[in-house]
Amino acid sequence: MRVLFLPLALVLAPAHAQFNLNLDRILDTVKNVSKATREIDEKEEIAIGRDMAARLLGAAPLVADARLQRYVNNVGRWLASQTERAELPWQFGVLDAPQLNAFAVPGGTVFVTRGLVAKMRNEAELAGVLSHEIAHVLKKHHLKAIQKGAQVSLAGDAFSTALSDSRSEARAKLISFGTEMYSRGLDKSDELEADRLGVVIAARGGYDAYGLPAVLQTLQAMNAEDSAVALMFKTHPAPAERLDALGEKMQPTLDAYSNQPQLPERFTVEAKAAR
């Protein structure tokens, strides 16, 4: 028996060690997941947002017209001031791109393309689009999607490193993932929520609440094959679906604030450079 027992002990010893090793790995994974799911604080959100904004500006620069940029910043800042995150360092930019699109970046940065501004007819429409993007920032839609993606793509302590070290490889990976979201799109429910909240924010700012629906109508009338709207249509629900959803949930608000100003004259003068 003794002779038999000794080799058995030798066989069992590595198995025991292996079990411990596996348990350690499982514990590490649990720790890593909890690290990746920890709340990103506001300072980190703003810093991540700045890096993502710099990337988007690398894809398309600002329209070189200070008057247009200041105008959009005034409209956007006024709207953001009507929200629960009024103290974020809000900044708005018109990207020099012919495509029709708009982007919300975590931490309070919002972009709209020259192509989309060129299709607008008044300030209420601009306010509607900016309010939709502001709503994404308020609800942290992109930030939550980034965090979810980080759980899969960043191993070990990389998520914490990505947040704390802006020059790290992990940070570059996080920003790449975040920026690519603008090509992949958010969940449909996030877009429809941003539409509903956007209507409210524009109404709070004193604008005709129909500004956003009016832009959706413009998009609906465009040819879906047009390359200028390809990315927008790929990353958002169809305009008809968005209009239906707004009609279903927001008709009373839309109607109650439909007589507020549209300001076509000011828009025509201030947004001239987008045309």
């Binding site: 791109a97 012919p98 192509g115 603008y182 090509s183 009338a221 390359s227």
Partner: peptide
């Protein structure tokens, strides 16, 4: 706004976003 087709548009497409440098 009509249905004007803009072909061969360069600017902010998916590829440019993915390859953009800060």
């Amino acid at each position: 706004s009509g249905t004007t087709v803009t072909t061969g548009v360069r600017g902010l497409d998916a590829e440019q976003i993915s390859n953009a440098q800060p």
